[in-house]
Amino acid sequence: MTDKPSPQTKWNSEHPLEMLAHQYVRSALKRGLLERQPCEVCGEAETDAHHDDYDQPRKVRWLCRRHHQQHHAERRKA
């Protein structure tokens, strides 16, 4: 019987550039090089970092979970 990787493990291995960008944000926040900002749409304080371009890991937009998910849903439709 083989152990099946978790969906997150599978995503991580299939998206190395995205993983590096996410790791950069976590590290920069922890080291004080990047400061979490309110959602650029609604001003909510609890936000996710969103990358429009994973080749630019330092360039993030701050979106609350609702607007982050909405943004990705709209991109999938396009």
Rank of each mutant, 00 (worst) to 15 (best):
H50I: 07
A78L: 12
H67I: 07
H50S: 06
A21F: 01
D3H: 03
G43S: 07
A45Y: 01
R76I: 14
R61G: 01
L29C: 07
S6T: 15
T9P: 00
H68C: 03
E46Q: 13
L17V: 12
Q56N: 13
P5E: 13
E44H: 09
E40D: 08
R31P: 00
P38T: 08
H15G: 06
Q70S: 12
H67S: 06
W11Q: 08
P5C: 09
H22L: 12
W62R: 01
R66Y: 12
M19W: 00
L17H: 03
E18F: 01
V25C: 11
A78K: 13
E40N: 06
C39L: 05
L33K: 13
G43R: 06
R58E: 15
Y24Q: 09
S13R: 15
L17F: 03
K30S: 11
D3W: 00
H71C: 03
R66C: 00
Q69F: 05
H67T: 07
L63R: 10
A49L: 01
H67R: 05
L33C: 02
S27G: 03
K10T: 15
D3L: 10
Y54H: 15
R58G: 12
L17M: 11
K77Y: 02
K10C: 00
T47W: 00
A21P: 05
P16S: 08
D48Q: 14
D52C: 02
H72R: 06
P38D: 03
R36Y: 01
L63D: 05
C42D: 10
C42E: 04
R75G: 00
R36L: 04
E14P: 01
L34K: 00
L33H: 11
P38L: 04
C39G: 03
S27K: 15
A28C: 06
R75A: 13
V60N: 06
R26W: 04
L29D: 09
L34I: 02
Q23R: 15
A73I: 11
H68D: 02
M1V: 05
D55G: 11
L63V: 10
H50Y: 13
R75T: 11
T47F: 04
Q23M: 11
D52T: 10
Y24E: 10
R26E: 15
D53Q: 02
K10E: 11
